[in-house]
């Protein structure tokens, strides 16, 4: 696995921290006194922000990571080497 791909997994782990306890529990506590943010449920706004950020990051990685940009062209037959 290349360095750039490793970074993707590190960022993915950080992303998971943002949408799981204890971070989500802290946001939940804040939402008790501030149920609405921008007119929508506070907890939903927090999660939605990170989900959108996660999808954007995934799209960026798909476009930029060299290891993810190689297409597979070496196999001509379908199942030529059945094990």
């Amino acid at each position: 696995m290349g360095k750039s791909e490793k970074w993707f997994y590190v960022i993915l782990l950080l992303w998971l921290l943002m949408v799981n306890p204890p971070v989500v529990t802290w946001v939940n506590e804040y939402a008790r006194s501030h149920p609405l943010t921008f007119g929508w449920p506070t907890l939903w706004v927090w999660l939605e922000f990170w989900y959108v950020a996660g999808i954007a990051g995934f799209a960026l990685a798909a476009a930029k990571l060299p290891a993810w940009n190689r297409d597979h062209t070496g196999m001509s037959g379908r199942g030529g080497e059945r094990s």
Binding site: Y51, W68, G79, E81, R82
Partner: peptide, 23 residues
Amino acid sequence: TVLPGVIFWVWGRRVWYLGQKYG
């Protein structure tokens, strides 16, 4: 709903490759 796509690519590309190679 976010992670199925990640798994579809990260694991799925290896499954796809083996499918192509071994049928």
